[in-house]
Design a protein around this nucleic acid. Structure first.
Lengths: 244, 244
DNA sequence: CCTCTGAAATGGACTAGACAACTCTGATAG
DNA sequence: CTATCAGAGTTGTCTAGTCCATTTCAGAGG
């Protein structure tokens, strides 16, 4: 296969011209400023509202603009840096100067899908606890976190979780176990209506999904978690040193 | 502020019904299979082509479908796991069983923007080298990587980079320096026409952007890099242990 | 048998407009 | 003065279509 890197650049779509025009405009405005309405832009840039909306949508997805139905479109606040590989959510937030809290959305027992079962080292259809929590920072929803744990291994977990906010504390105090290693994954996704509602954003908005697969000292899987963050609001940060 | 988590769920948009219908269909098909055309779906699901395209676009963005103009829409291959925090790009790829290569796209000397200057610890407008490279895995474009380094500190760098593929080797062998710590950031973005062209995807496609800010043993900044990966093709993976 | 050509089918980009849902403001009634 | 409400203006969703760029493939011609 021959690589075709030097071929002609594709012609620029019209909505991209609109986008560049808006980017220039955004640079001159302070966060919170109102940008022209869709209909005004349609006339000014001599295009259709659909095209203007495509440009606006991308900028919203990138966290540069915020749309408020019935009100207007505004220049967004800069993204919030969020440390990766945190010991404890609450702890790390406090260190960064935020007040963090957690809200239990749902805690149910269900049958493991093939995917969940293989991750937890149990049989498909075995009982698992599914714990869904909303992470808040300064009372603003930050992430939707869903944890899966084996029901056989952590019998009665739901009752404990309802009383104590920290899952890791329950695991340590009640079940005498703690994760010593983990494999984390980071990928992009698109918000479903449910996540969009909980995180106060739009269906289809770009998300950052952080997955964590935790193991105990014996190498046995403890939990499988995935956390959905608004991609337009957060940027993950990790500090690395020497060794690698 | 009172949290309003239990209010009614928003009514499901029609395009999301289309999307769920397609997801069900995708689950029954093998990667590479053809899905019905946009016009067929429009009739079958009794909607407009615009609405069908919105659903298809999200699925393409999530890496579940691939569109080929003039041909059709196909079920996509699963995402590729890519290790984070790699020592050397080539090395790490080899370890994962891939053959990696790098193609130099551009290497120029330019004036530092305010942002770049502050990252490199130099004055705005000072000379910097901007080195743009395309990372390939098994001859498939994987990421567009742009590095910025101080031209004063690494005089003549471009000449060396044209001869040697590894930037870090040049830094070590010629300039006797190496990064010992770094701060990495991960965020979502949207592909510009240029990146879309280089990575063989579409303008506006969701991307994962990895930033790395490297420092030497004296704590002086060495380089600032950002790498753009196709969000629909890659998932970053990191292994963590105990103390982390 | 091979090559070329052109029609058909596909996705890509865009338009013009309708109606719904929501926000804000100013006029009005109490 | 305050509270309410109607209406104007905004974004959200959807429709029905046009035209373009690319791919595919069957058939004509060599």
């Amino acid at each position: 296969m021959v690589l075709d890197v030097n071929h002609q650049a594709p012609r620029e779509p019209k909505y991209y011209q609109v986008k560049r025009h808006l980017l220039q405009l955004i640079d001159t405005l302070a966060p919170g400023s109102l940008v022209p309405t869709e209909r005004v832009l349609t006339v000014e840039l001599e295009t259709s509202r659909t095209t203007v909306r495509q440009a606006l949508s991308e900028l919203v997805g990138e966290g540069r603009l915020v749309r408020r139905q019935g009100s207007g479109t505004y220049v967004a606040e800069p993204k919030i840096a969020w440390p990766l590989h945190m010991t404890s959510f609450t702890e790390q937030a406090a260190a960064a100067g935020y007040s963090a809290s957690t809200q239990l959305l749902d805690a149910v027992r269900e049958r493991a899908s093939e995917d969940i079962a293989s991750r937890l080292g149990i049989k498909t259809g075995a009982s698992v606890y599914c714990i869904e929590r909303l992470r808040l920072v300064d009372d603003t929803p930050m992430a939707v976190e869903t944890s899966y744990l084996s029901a056989a291994r952590f019998a009665g977990l739901i009752g404990h979780v309802r009383k104590t906010s920290s899952l890791y504390r329950v695991l340590a105090d009640v079940y005498g176990t703690a994760p010593v290693s983990a494999e984390e994954t980071i990928e992009t996704a698109v918000a479903s209506p449910r996540e969009a509602d909980l995180l106060n954003t739009d269906t289809g908005a770009p998300m950052l999904v952080l997955g964590r697969h935790s193991f105990d000292d014996a190498g046995e899987p403890i939990e499988w978690v995935h956390s959905w963050y608004r991609g337009d609001r957060y940027v993950f940060v990790a500090k690395l040193s020497a060794g690698h």
